[in-house]
Protein backbone atom coordinates (compact mmCIF):
# COMPACT_ATOMS: atom_id res chain seq x y z
CA UNK A 1 0.00 0.00 0.00
CA UNK A 2 2.73 2.37 0.99
CA UNK A 3 4.83 1.48 -1.99
CA UNK A 4 1.81 2.11 -4.20
CA UNK A 5 1.28 5.51 -2.61
CA UNK A 6 4.88 6.45 -3.10
CA UNK A 7 4.80 5.21 -6.69
CA UNK A 8 1.67 7.26 -7.37
CA UNK A 9 3.08 10.38 -5.75
CA UNK A 10 6.36 10.15 -7.62
CA UNK A 11 4.73 9.30 -10.96
CA UNK A 12 2.29 12.16 -10.66
CA UNK A 13 4.93 14.64 -9.60
CA UNK A 14 7.22 13.67 -12.46
CA UNK A 15 4.31 13.75 -14.92
CA UNK A 16 3.33 17.22 -13.77
CA UNK A 17 6.80 18.61 -14.04
CA UNK A 18 7.59 16.87 -17.29
CA UNK A 19 4.82 18.84 -18.96
CA UNK A 20 6.82 22.03 -18.47
CA UNK A 21 8.43 23.03 -21.77
CA UNK A 22 12.02 21.86 -22.07
CA UNK A 23 14.36 24.46 -23.53
CA UNK A 24 15.85 23.06 -26.72
CA UNK A 25 18.72 25.50 -27.17
CA UNK A 26 21.29 27.10 -24.93
CA UNK A 27 21.34 30.87 -25.06
CA UNK A 28 19.10 33.74 -24.09
CA UNK A 29 16.07 31.94 -25.66
CA UNK A 30 15.99 29.62 -22.64
CA UNK A 31 14.55 32.51 -20.66
CA UNK A 32 11.25 34.12 -21.46
CA UNK A 33 11.37 37.86 -22.23
CA UNK A 34 9.71 39.82 -19.41
CA UNK A 35 6.96 41.23 -21.60
CA UNK A 36 5.89 37.68 -22.54
CA UNK A 37 6.40 35.92 -19.19
CA UNK A 38 2.77 36.07 -18.10
CA UNK A 39 3.50 37.98 -14.88
CA UNK A 40 4.78 41.33 -16.14
CA UNK A 41 2.36 43.77 -17.72
CA UNK A 42 3.64 44.37 -21.27
CA UNK A 43 1.91 47.77 -21.05
CA UNK A 44 3.88 48.75 -17.93
CA UNK A 45 5.68 52.08 -18.49
CA UNK A 46 9.02 50.81 -17.15
CA UNK A 47 9.03 47.31 -18.63
CA UNK A 48 11.92 48.18 -20.97
CA UNK A 49 14.04 49.50 -18.12
CA UNK A 50 14.21 46.07 -16.49
CA UNK A 51 17.05 43.67 -17.21
CA UNK A 52 15.98 40.63 -19.22
CA UNK A 53 16.70 37.32 -17.44
CA UNK A 54 18.38 35.86 -20.52
CA UNK A 55 20.89 38.70 -20.68
CA UNK A 56 22.21 37.97 -17.19
CA UNK A 57 21.55 34.26 -16.74
CA UNK A 58 23.05 33.11 -20.05
CA UNK A 59 26.45 34.17 -18.69
CA UNK A 60 26.25 31.74 -15.77
CA UNK A 61 27.06 28.01 -15.35
CA UNK A 62 24.08 26.31 -17.02
CA UNK A 63 21.55 24.02 -15.39
CA UNK A 64 18.47 22.27 -16.72
CA UNK A 65 15.99 23.35 -14.04
CA UNK A 66 14.89 26.41 -12.06
CA UNK A 67 16.56 29.54 -13.42
CA UNK A 68 18.72 27.28 -15.65
CA UNK A 69 21.67 28.34 -13.51
CA UNK A 70 23.98 26.43 -11.16
CA UNK A 71 23.97 29.08 -8.47
CA UNK A 72 26.41 27.40 -6.06
CA UNK A 73 28.89 26.85 -8.86
CA UNK A 74 28.46 30.45 -10.07
CA UNK A 75 29.41 31.71 -6.61
CA UNK A 76 32.39 29.37 -6.21
CA UNK A 77 33.77 30.03 -9.67
CA UNK A 78 33.49 33.76 -9.07
CA UNK A 79 31.07 34.26 -11.97
CA UNK A 80 29.12 36.29 -9.45
CA UNK A 81 30.27 37.96 -6.25
CA UNK A 82 27.11 38.82 -4.34
CA UNK A 83 27.29 40.99 -1.23
CA UNK A 84 27.38 39.10 2.09
CA UNK A 85 25.84 41.69 4.39
CA UNK A 86 24.34 45.12 4.66
CA UNK A 87 24.71 45.56 8.42
CA UNK A 88 28.39 45.98 9.31
CA UNK A 89 28.11 43.84 12.44
CA UNK A 90 26.83 40.75 10.58
CA UNK A 91 29.05 37.74 11.18
CA UNK A 92 29.89 35.63 8.15
CA UNK A 93 30.08 32.02 9.20
CA UNK A 94 30.75 29.28 6.66
CA UNK A 95 30.48 25.81 8.13
CA UNK A 96 32.32 23.02 6.31
CA UNK A 97 30.26 20.16 7.66
CA UNK A 98 28.06 17.51 6.07
CA UNK A 99 24.97 15.92 7.54
CA UNK A 100 24.11 12.43 6.31
CA UNK A 101 20.53 11.33 6.85
CA UNK A 102 19.82 7.60 6.83
CA UNK A 103 16.14 7.70 7.72
CA UNK A 104 15.09 7.97 4.07
CA UNK A 105 12.82 4.96 3.60
CA UNK A 106 13.45 3.17 0.32
CA UNK A 107 15.26 6.14 -1.16
CA UNK A 108 18.98 6.86 -1.07
CA UNK A 109 20.53 8.57 1.94
CA UNK A 110 20.60 12.36 1.96
CA UNK A 111 23.79 14.38 2.13
CA UNK A 112 23.20 17.94 3.32
CA UNK A 113 26.26 20.16 2.77
CA UNK A 114 26.40 22.95 5.34
CA UNK A 115 29.10 24.67 3.29
CA UNK A 116 27.01 25.36 0.18
CA UNK A 117 24.18 26.58 2.38
CA UNK A 118 26.21 28.81 4.69
CA UNK A 119 27.93 30.45 1.74
CA UNK A 120 24.52 31.93 0.95
CA UNK A 121 22.60 31.90 4.22
CA UNK A 122 22.95 32.90 7.84
CA UNK A 123 22.72 30.22 10.57
CA UNK A 124 19.64 32.00 11.90
CA UNK A 125 17.78 31.54 8.64
CA UNK A 126 17.29 27.86 9.49
CA UNK A 127 18.14 27.49 13.19
CA UNK A 128 16.13 27.07 15.33
CA UNK A 129 12.99 28.12 13.52
CA UNK A 130 13.02 25.58 10.66
CA UNK A 131 15.59 23.06 11.86
CA UNK A 132 16.77 22.23 15.36
CA UNK A 133 20.54 22.32 15.60
CA UNK A 134 20.69 18.84 17.13
CA UNK A 135 20.97 16.30 14.31
CA UNK A 136 17.82 14.21 13.87
CA UNK A 137 15.77 16.24 16.34
CA UNK A 138 13.58 18.03 13.81
CA UNK A 139 11.63 15.19 12.22
CA UNK A 140 10.33 16.00 8.74
CA UNK A 141 9.17 13.93 5.79
CA UNK A 142 9.23 14.32 2.02
CA UNK A 143 5.55 15.20 2.13
CA UNK A 144 6.38 18.20 4.37
CA UNK A 145 9.04 19.33 1.92
CA UNK A 146 6.64 19.05 -1.03
CA UNK A 147 4.20 21.17 0.97
CA UNK A 148 6.78 23.95 1.31
CA UNK A 149 8.05 23.17 4.79
CA UNK A 150 11.58 22.30 6.02
CA UNK A 151 13.94 22.15 2.97
CA UNK A 152 10.88 23.02 0.88
CA UNK A 153 10.91 26.58 2.15
CA UNK A 154 13.64 27.26 -0.41
CA UNK A 155 13.95 24.11 -2.56
CA UNK A 156 10.94 24.23 -4.79
CA UNK A 157 10.62 28.01 -4.44
CA UNK A 158 13.96 29.63 -5.25
CA UNK A 159 16.81 27.13 -4.96
CA UNK A 160 16.91 24.02 -7.17
CA UNK A 161 13.49 22.36 -7.41
CA UNK A 162 12.26 19.09 -5.93
CA UNK A 163 12.38 17.25 -9.25
CA UNK A 164 16.13 16.80 -8.69
CA UNK A 165 15.89 13.87 -6.25
CA UNK A 166 19.51 12.73 -6.62
CA UNK A 167 21.02 16.09 -5.74
CA UNK A 168 19.96 15.48 -2.14
CA UNK A 169 19.42 11.71 -2.11
CA UNK A 170 22.95 11.25 -3.34
CA UNK A 171 24.29 8.35 -1.29
CA UNK A 172 23.63 4.72 -2.25
CA UNK A 173 22.97 2.89 1.03
CA UNK A 174 24.16 -0.35 -0.61
CA UNK A 175 27.72 0.88 -0.97
CA UNK A 176 27.88 3.43 1.86
CA UNK A 177 30.60 2.59 4.39
CA UNK A 178 30.69 5.82 6.39
CA UNK A 179 28.72 6.94 9.39
CA UNK A 180 25.47 8.85 9.52
CA UNK A 181 25.01 12.23 11.13
CA UNK A 182 27.12 15.38 11.33
CA UNK A 183 30.70 15.12 10.11
CA UNK A 184 33.58 16.99 8.53
CA UNK A 185 32.85 17.40 4.84
CA UNK A 186 34.60 14.97 2.53
CA UNK A 187 37.14 16.89 0.44
CA UNK A 188 35.90 18.21 -2.88
CA UNK A 189 32.29 17.19 -2.34
CA UNK A 190 30.04 20.22 -2.75
Amino acid sequence: MNALLKFLAVTWTVLLWSTAPVPAVAGPEKWSPLEKDGLHDPQGPAIHELQQPGEALSQMPPDSVGNQVRWVEALRKGTINPRTNILPETKIQVLDQDLIYGNTGDNWFVLFPHKAHTEWLDCANCHERIFKTKFGATGFKMMDILAGKACGQCHGAVSFPLTECRRCHSIDPGTFKGKLGAQQAAGGKP
Binding site: R83, T84, N85, I86, T90, N125, Q153
Partner: peptide, 28 residues
Amino acid sequence: MRPPIFPHWFHRIRFRCKVCHADLGFKF
Protein backbone atom coordinates in the same frame (compact mmCIF):
# COMPACT_ATOMS: atom_id res chain seq x y z
CA MET B 1 -1.35 50.07 -8.70
CA ARG B 2 0.19 47.20 -10.63
CA PRO B 3 1.45 44.57 -8.14
CA PRO B 4 5.24 44.60 -7.59
CA ILE B 5 7.31 41.71 -8.94
CA PHE B 6 10.47 40.83 -7.05
CA PRO B 7 12.94 39.02 -9.34
CA HIS B 8 14.84 36.65 -7.05
CA TRP B 9 17.34 35.80 -9.83
CA PHE B 10 18.32 39.45 -10.32
CA HIS B 11 18.93 39.99 -6.62
CA ARG B 12 20.75 36.67 -6.14
CA ILE B 13 23.41 37.78 -8.58
CA ARG B 14 24.11 40.81 -6.38
CA PHE B 15 23.25 39.71 -2.84
CA ARG B 16 23.47 36.49 -0.86
CA CYS B 17 20.19 35.23 0.61
CA LYS B 18 21.24 36.33 4.10
CA VAL B 19 21.40 40.03 3.22
CA CYS B 20 17.61 40.23 2.89
CA HIS B 21 16.54 37.19 4.86
CA ALA B 22 18.79 37.77 7.88
CA ASP B 23 20.02 41.39 7.95
CA LEU B 24 16.77 42.89 6.66
CA GLY B 25 14.42 40.37 8.24
CA PHE B 26 12.43 39.26 5.20
CA LYS B 27 10.50 36.10 6.10
CA PHE B 28 10.55 33.18 3.67
